[in-house]
Lab assay of single mutants.
Amino acid sequence: MTVLPKDIPGDSLKVTVGTANGKPGDTVTVPVTFADVAKMKNVGTCNFYLGYDASLLEVVSVDAGPIVKNAAVNFSSSASNGTISFLFLDNTITDELITADGVFANIKFKLKSVTAKTTTPVTFKDGGAFGDGTMSKIASVTKTNGSVTIDP
Rank of each mutant, 00 (worst) to 15 (best):
E96Y: 02
V141A: 03
D151V: 15
M40P: 11
N74M: 02
V62D: 05
S55R: 09
T94H: 03
K137F: 00
V114E: 05
V30E: 11
I138K: 01
V114P: 08
S12R: 12
A64H: 09
K137D: 00
A20F: 12
T149Q: 14
V148K: 00
G146C: 05
V68Y: 07
T99H: 07
P24K: 12
A71W: 04
I84T: 05
V15D: 14
N21H: 12
G133A: 03
D95L: 02
S136Y: 15
N70S: 12
T16M: 12
N74S: 03
L50Y: 06
S77G: 09
G25R: 11
G133D: 04
S80N: 14
T94F: 15
K14T: 11
S76H: 06
V17F: 14
K143N: 03
V62S: 05
A72E: 11
F109E: 00
N42H: 11
G10C: 12
S113Y: 06
N21G: 08
A54H: 11
V28K: 13
V122F: 12
E96D: 06
A38S: 12
L89Y: 00
T120E: 13
A116P: 06
T134F: 06
P31G: 11
L87K: 02
C46H: 08
L87H: 04
K39R: 10
V62I: 13
K69G: 08
V30D: 09
T142I: 07
F75I: 02
F124E: 02
A72N: 15
L57D: 07
T45F: 01
V43E: 02
K125H: 03
V37T: 10
F124P: 01
S12T: 13
D90V: 05
F124A: 02
T83Y: 15
T27N: 11
I107K: 00
E96Q: 14
V62L: 09
T92Y: 00
A38Y: 11
P5T: 08
F86A: 00
T134R: 14
G18I: 12
D90R: 02
I93Y: 01
V73H: 03
F88D: 01
K117F: 03
V73L: 07
M135R: 01
D7E: 14
T99M: 12
V62Q: 07
K41C: 07
G51F: 08
N21D: 11
V62G: 09
G82M: 15
L111E: 01
G146K: 06
K6E: 09
G10K: 10
A100Y: 06
V43R: 00
V32R: 02
T99E: 11
S12Y: 14
S136M: 05
K41I: 11
V73K: 05
K125A: 01
S12L: 12
G65V: 04
N47R: 00
T123V: 07
T134I: 13
P66K: 11
S147Q: 05
L87S: 13
K69P: 08
L89F: 02
I150E: 14
M135F: 05
T29Q: 06
E96S: 03
Y52H: 12
C46M: 14
T120V: 07
K117W: 01
L4E: 11
G128V: 03
N47Y: 01
I93S: 02
V15C: 14
K39V: 09
N81G: 15
T29S: 11
T33Y: 12
D7V: 13
V122P: 04
T92H: 02
N91M: 15
N91F: 15
V30Q: 14
D53Y: 14
T2S: 14
K41G: 11
G146I: 04
G128S: 02
P121I: 05
S76L: 08
S55K: 12
V114A: 07
L111K: 04
A20M: 12
G10I: 12
K14Q: 13
A129N: 00
A71Y: 14
S61L: 11
V148F: 04
L4N: 14
T149Y: 15
G82V: 15
A20V: 11
V3C: 13
V73Q: 05
L50R: 01
A139V: 06
S55Q: 07
E58L: 10
N21A: 14
V60M: 09
A72F: 13
T19R: 13
N106F: 07
V37D: 11
A71C: 11
K110D: 00
T16V: 11
L57W: 12
V3I: 11
T118V: 04
I93G: 00
L111S: 04
T120S: 07
S76D: 14
S80T: 12
K108C: 04
G25E: 12
A38T: 13
L111A: 04
P152N: 07
Y52E: 03
G22C: 05
N42G: 07
T92L: 02
A79S: 15
N145K: 07
V15L: 07
S147E: 08
S76G: 14
T33P: 12
V30K: 08
N106P: 01
S80C: 05
F109T: 02
V3D: 12
T142N: 07
G65W: 09
S113D: 07
V59S: 09
T99Q: 07
N145A: 05
S78A: 15
M40A: 08
G133K: 07
L97G: 04
L87Q: 01
F75P: 01
D95M: 01
T99P: 05
T92D: 00
I67Y: 12
V28L: 09
L13F: 06
L89K: 01
G44Q: 01
I84M: 03
G82F: 15
F48L: 07
T144R: 07
T120D: 06
Y52V: 09
N91W: 03
K117Y: 03
V60K: 11
N21K: 11
F104H: 02
V103N: 00
S80K: 15
G102Q: 04
V59A: 07
T142V: 06
V59C: 08
T115H: 07
T19N: 13
L56T: 08
K41Y: 10
G10M: 11
F109L: 05
T99V: 07
T45K: 02
G18L: 13
K41H: 09
F104M: 02
V73C: 12
K143V: 02
K69Q: 10
T115R: 06
S85L: 00
S85E: 01
D53R: 11
S85D: 01
T134H: 05
S76Q: 04
A20Q: 14
P5C: 06
K143C: 00
S78P: 10
G133C: 07
V15T: 09
G102N: 01
I150W: 07
G128W: 06
K108E: 06
A20Y: 12
A116T: 08
T115I: 14
F86S: 03
I67V: 11
T33N: 10
A35T: 08
A116H: 06
D95S: 05
F104P: 00
D36P: 13
S113H: 07
P31H: 11
V32T: 08
T120A: 10
A35C: 06
L87D: 01
K137L: 00
T123S: 07
S113N: 05
T142W: 15
D101V: 06
K112Q: 06
V17E: 08
